[in-house]
Simulated scan of single mutants.
Amino acid sequence: MLYDDFYVKSLIRTVDDWPKPGISFRDITPIFTNPKGMRMVVDAYVHRYIDSDITHIACIDARGFLIASVLAYELRKPLVLIRKKGKLPGETISQKYDLEYGSAELEIQVDSVKPGDNVLLFDDLIATGGTLVAAISLLQSQGATVKETAAIIDLPDLGGSNRIQSLDIPVFALAAYEGE
């Protein structure tokens, strides 16, 4: 079996009132401690993108790194790190954005992508879309095309996937939590 969404979703733990009261945090770390679950998640993405025109995989600090690095290895694609401000050496560009529960700033190294690159942008979760929209802006500012965004979890009620799709960028997620 390539992918069992019920099984993978059963591994995702909900932590109420974290990182602040009123937030129900979807914790994917149990996937990483479960070899079967990890294999299902990685294989689902490999099979989705193996014949695509993706040239690069970009991922967002920090949980996005975990699956995206394995995916880049499996697909033999360059991995582009998008990190919190001050974490990348060399010349960078940055983009501020709002989170569901605060604000932050992302950076990318200026030589990570170039015009003509087709990028899959990966993060662990789509909430309000602020992080992904900031990352899209960084990639596009360097001339790359974001072909799709991918995540393990989508929280459609928070509007992030619709926000990304309004930019004409498809969204793919393995699990969605609506009305919860």
Rank of each mutant, 00 (worst) to 15 (best):
D4W: 02
D5T: 14
F6G: 12
K9V: 04
S10Y: 04
I12L: 06
R13S: 03
T14G: 00
D16R: 13
D17E: 12
W18S: 10
P21N: 14
I23M: 10
I23Y: 04
S24D: 13
P30E: 08
F32Y: 14
T33V: 06
N34E: 10
P35E: 12
K36G: 11
Y45P: 00
H47L: 08
D51T: 13
S52W: 06
S52I: 04
I54Y: 03
H56W: 05
A62P: 05
R63M: 01
A72R: 04
L75S: 08
L75C: 12
L75Q: 11
R76D: 15
R76H: 14
K77W: 00
K77R: 15
K77P: 00
P78Y: 11
P78F: 06
L81V: 12
R83I: 11
G86K: 07
P89Y: 03
T92C: 09
K96Q: 14
D98K: 14
G102L: 08
S103T: 14
A104Q: 06
E105G: 01
I108P: 00
I108E: 05
V110L: 07
S112L: 06
D117C: 09
N118S: 14
N118T: 10
L125E: 05
I126T: 09
A127H: 09
T128D: 11
T128W: 05
G129Q: 04
G129T: 05
L132P: 02
S141E: 12
T145A: 13
V146P: 03
E148Q: 15
E148C: 13
T149A: 13
A151Y: 04
I152C: 09
I153Q: 01
P156F: 01
L158F: 14
S161W: 01
Q165N: 13
S166F: 03
L167W: 00
D168L: 01
F172K: 07
A173I: 01
Y177W: 05
E180Y: 12
